[in-house]
Amino acid sequence: MAYNWNWGVFLQPTATGDESTYFGWMLYGFKMTIALSLSAWLIALAVGAVVGVLRTVPNKWLSGIATAYVEVFRNIPLLVQLFLWYFVIPELLPENLGNAFKQTNPILQQFLASMVCLALFTSARVAEQVRSGINSLPPGQKNAGLAMGFTLPQTYRHVMLPMAVRLIVPPLTSEFLNIFKNSAVCSTIGLLELAAQGRQLVDYTAQPYESFIAVTVAYLLINVVVMFGMRWVEGYVRVPGYIGGK
């Protein structure tokens, strides 16, 4: 078989005449993937922390609601959730709100639906990590906090959460990596992130290998950067003289 490798394709202007090169398209997709994943990650951390804490509180109602939240987001495929956010939720909103959403810029619509979807999907996973972090603390820690006169919220704030957060940095690293990978699913509603741009390049150029290899390498790059970043975080929050958590 004869395949003409041509890495120069990235520097060619695109066939649509939008004054960009194919490299420009890739860069746009790369930035979109980063912006989407980071914004969704911040929301996921905040929501996941709250839900995870609620799963461990003595109040049956609160922990029940938190459990239901986690089960719903864990047992429906990400793609289905995304379509629900993008196609269904705007229809179910009160009319004026739904219309307001539909009248915004289509790219913004895609971005918002993707962000909310990824954020809540990931928040359920973060919540599970937070819960298991709190549950893996020695049970005496909670008693020690309470015995000193802390209220239950104070005990969480000053005693349990600071340690739980440190314990869950490694598992959170893998969730953080997952959110970048999962963001590729958003190409299905037309969001032009990295995977979608790779696919476009296959359609527009006759160089499928180059485009897919470039996209794959871009994801590998994100992985490496995130891993080094999180390793730094791990070192930063390390407690002197404290080994393991069990």
Binding site: F180, K181, V185, A195, G198, F212, Y219, L220, N223
Partner: peptide
């Protein structure tokens, strides 16, 4: 390290 969507695209398109 690679999204499942990318792997599937490899397998469908290439």
């Amino acid at each position: 390290a690679v999204p499942l969507v990318m792997v599937l695209l490899w397998f469908f398109l290439i």
